[in-house]
Every structure is written in structure tokens, then in C-alpha cells.
């Protein structure tokens, strides 16, 4: 396959950055999108040029480290998929592919396609835990949890923290990410004692980080690799009101 990559290059956070085009001839349909970028990088090295900086680790859709805009869509042309799961067979031979980093105020660009998502860690730090020290847990089956409750917690817990929801949202809102975590923990009996404080602290941090408000366009759930539903956001809002009243 022959592909022209139009890639955002930016030396550092304070540089202006811009697109550069690279033509690569010997790609195959079996290659993953990231392997095609690896290949481009090998070519660049041999031409004595700096490689394109991009992120990845597991390369199987679970760690959440990868993620770029491909032809204007977070994680590329398919719904509910990570960048690392995308293969070149999804593109036409001869195509031009535009590759950009996540663009959101709260995810500043570090270099080329790499952004800083540490705001997510800080939201977690502010309440996304159950305060029980190691060694203090009761027998696991002592608290029964119905399958429905546990399955719903699992649906919400599935988030891999890639940031596609923020990147794709026109308001750069982190509501899907934050609500998924709140609903996971607040939906379980173990999370109940700190439920109200958790909602208040996590949402406060979300605002402090500069993420925008949710206007329910639903764009996020289309790009979410785990298919996390925006119903989570409505549920978070309800929990927020309850926490304000009773918290």
C-alpha cells in the first residue's frame, strides 16, 4: 500500500507546530495503524530525521495509552475502537491520512502526537477510591451484591482512561470519564459510605482542571472504546444533586 501521512509535528509545549507530509510506499493491509507509524519512523531514522513521537503501550486496546485523531475522528474511522486496534485495511491504497493529537485545553501537547492527560489522575486522586486499608476487609461473600448491580458497576468500570471522550467533545468535557468512575464506586455497597463526598470532590476537581460542561451531544459514547453510555452522565448529575442536598 502507498499512503501519505499528514502528521502534526510540534517540538514542545510552547512551539507552534504544524502538519508535515510523509509518503510511505511499502505498507501492507495486515499492518496495524501504529505499525505503519513505526515503519515511517524507521524510514525517518535512516534519513537522519527525528521520529514522530506518539503513544502506545499494550497495543491491544486495554491500557488506554494510545490515541490520536485520524482524519478528524478520535481513534480513527470506526466506532468504539482504540487507535492501536485499527488496521491499514481500513484505508484505501493511495489515501492521505491526517494524524493529530488530542486537542483539549486540559490535555496540553507535550510533543508531536503526545499530550499530557495527568488531569485524569488528579480527578481519581480526589475521591475515586474506597478508604479501606489493606488488611481491613471483611469476608468477600459477607456482603451480597445482586448480579444486576454488579454488572452495572462493571459496565461503568470498564473505562480505560484514554481520553477520547474529552478529545471528541466540542466542549472538551470530562463528564463521561468522571461519571463512569463515580457510578462504578457509588453503585456498589462498598462505595456507599463515601458516596456523597466522592461526587462532590471529583466533580469539583473536574472543573478545576478546566474541562468544559457536558451538553449531551452523545459524541463521546460513539468514540469510547469500551462503549460507555452517556446515561452515566445523567446518573452522575442525579447523584450530584442528591449529594448537594444530603451530603
Amino acid at each position: 500500500m502507498k499512503i501519505t501521512f499528514k502528521i502534526w509535528r510540534q517540538e514542545g509545549p510552547n512551539d507552534k507546530g504544524g502538519f508535515q507530509s510523509y509518503e510511505v510506499n511499502d505498507l501492507t493491509e495486515d499492518m496495524s495503524f501504529l505499525e505503519a507509524l513505526d515503519h515511517l519512523n524507521e524510514i525517518l531514522v535512516l534519513k537522519n530525521k527525528k521520529v514522530v513521537a506518539f503513544e502506545y503501550d499494550c497495543r491491544e486496546g486495554i491500557c488506554g495509552q494510545c490515541g490520536v485523531f485520524i482524519n478528524g475522528r478520535a481513534h480513527g474511522p470506526h466506532d468504539n475502537m482504540t487507535t492501536c486496534q485499527l488496521h491499514m485495511r481500513s484505508f484505501e491504497d493511495g489515501a492521505t491520512i491526517t494524524v493529530e493529537p488530542w486537542r483539549a485545553r486540559s490535555f496540553p501537547i507535550i510533543k508531536d502526537l503526545i499530550v499530557n492527560r495527568s488531569a485524569f489522575d488528579r480527578i481519581i486522586e480526589n475521591g475515586a477510591f474506597i478508604s479501606a486499608k489493606t488488611g481491613t476487609a471483611p469476608e468477600a461473600n459477607a456482603i451480597l451484591i445482586s448480579k444486576t448491580v454488579s454488572d452495572r458497576a462493571m459496565d461503568a468500570a470498564a473505562c480505560i482512561g484514554c481520553g477520547a471522550c474529552v478529545a471528541t467533545c466540542k466542549n472538551s468535557s470530562a463528564a463521561l470519564f468522571t461519571s463512569a468512575k463515580i457510578n462504578h464506586l457509588n453503585g456498589l455497597p462498598q462505595g456507599a459510605p463515601e458516596a456523597h463526598q466522592r461526587v462532590l470532590d471529583m466533580t469539583a476537581q473536574m472543573e478545576k482542571e478546566g474541562f468544559g460542561h457536558c451538553s449531551f451531544t452523545g459524541a463521546c459514547e460513539v468514540e469510547c472504546p469500551e462503549g460507555i453510555s452517556i446515561v452515566n452522565i445523567a446518573e452522575m448529575n442525579a447523584r450530584f444533586i442528591k449529594a448537594k442536598i444530603f451530603g
Partner: peptide, 21 residues
């Protein structure tokens, strides 16, 4: 005890309809 610990930390382990693991 490790399963007790993780359950307490909120790990949504698979459950039976009756609520046990």
C-alpha cells in the same frame, strides 16, 4: 484474603444471581 481485599476495594467481580461470587 486477597479476594476479600479486592472486593472491598470495589472490584466488580462476576456474581451469581443470589449475590455471591
Amino acid at each position: 484474603p486477597l479476594i476479600d481485599h479486592y472486593t472491598q476495594q470495589g472490584v466488580p467481580f462476576a456474581r451469581e444471581y443470589g449475590g455471591t461470587l
